[in-house]
Amino acid sequence: MLFCDVDRFKSINDTYGHAAGDEALRALANRIRACVGSNDVCARMGGDELLVILGGIHAVEDARQIEEKIRQAAERPIPVGHAEVNTSLSIGVALVEQGEEFDQVMARADTAMYEAKKNGRNMLVLVE
């Protein structure tokens, strides 16, 4: 599970308006979908938080490869109106442990995402 938060998203809304922020979120969602498989799930959790549930991931390296593709896709400038905005993602990753409930995995991934934000943003933190 990848818990993603758009870094400094408030500044996009404040500078370009909420319509531009929504446009940027849609573009990011499309970019994330392009990086994952058709059976994987991508969802907006609220605000600027996005959740990606990857099926068939059994090793940390597999998750890191997909995360890196997502992070790089997010860094490309996004056209909004007559401007371009630059984004990045702080991403927390948690692999499901045997017997673990969905909410527990999501909480661990969310905690890892906040670690990524605290450690400088635009990075991955993996919870093991």
Score class of each variant (00 low, 15 high):
92 G>E: 07
80 V>A: 07
15 T>C: 04
1 M>N: 11
125 V>A: 03
23 E>K: 03
95 L>H: 04
94 A>F: 04
57 I>G: 02
101 E>C: 02
19 A>S: 15
87 T>N: 04
50 L>C: 04
60 V>R: 13
7 D>V: 06
38 S>W: 09
38 S>V: 10
51 L>R: 08
121 R>F: 04
125 V>S: 03
103 D>A: 10
73 A>I: 12
18 H>C: 04
18 H>M: 13
9 F>P: 04
93 V>L: 01
103 D>Q: 15
103 D>I: 09
88 S>I: 09
47 G>Y: 01
10 K>T: 14
18 H>S: 08
4 C>P: 01
31 R>T: 05
3 F>W: 09
39 N>L: 12
52 V>A: 03
43 A>N: 07
101 E>L: 05
120 G>V: 06
66 I>S: 00
81 G>H: 11
31 R>Y: 01
18 H>G: 11
115 E>Q: 13
5 D>I: 01
61 E>A: 07
114 Y>Q: 09
81 G>S: 12
73 A>E: 15
18 H>T: 12
61 E>I: 07
34 A>G: 07
68 E>Q: 14
90 S>W: 05
108 R>L: 02
13 N>L: 10
86 N>I: 13
103 D>N: 15
28 L>Q: 09
121 R>G: 06
47 G>M: 00
93 V>W: 00
113 M>Q: 05
28 L>V: 09
11 S>E: 15
33 R>H: 05
51 L>I: 13
91 I>M: 04
29 A>P: 00
81 G>A: 13
49 E>Y: 01
69 K>Q: 14
114 Y>W: 07
76 R>T: 15
118 K>Y: 06
80 V>F: 04
127 V>F: 08
20 A>C: 05
61 E>H: 12
34 A>H: 06
36 V>S: 03
28 L>N: 11
80 V>I: 15
127 V>C: 12
99 G>N: 12
79 P>D: 15
21 G>R: 10
32 I>H: 00
72 Q>K: 14
125 V>D: 04
67 E>W: 02
67 E>P: 00
70 I>R: 02
21 G>A: 08
54 L>E: 10
42 C>W: 10
26 R>S: 06
33 R>E: 11
40 D>S: 00
32 I>E: 04
114 Y>D: 07
7 D>L: 01
28 L>F: 01
9 F>L: 08
24 A>C: 05
70 I>P: 00
4 C>L: 03
105 V>H: 09
83 A>K: 14
97 E>Y: 09
5 D>Y: 01
12 I>Q: 05
104 Q>A: 11
94 A>H: 06
126 L>F: 07
36 V>D: 03
35 C>E: 11
69 K>I: 14
8 R>Q: 14
63 A>E: 08
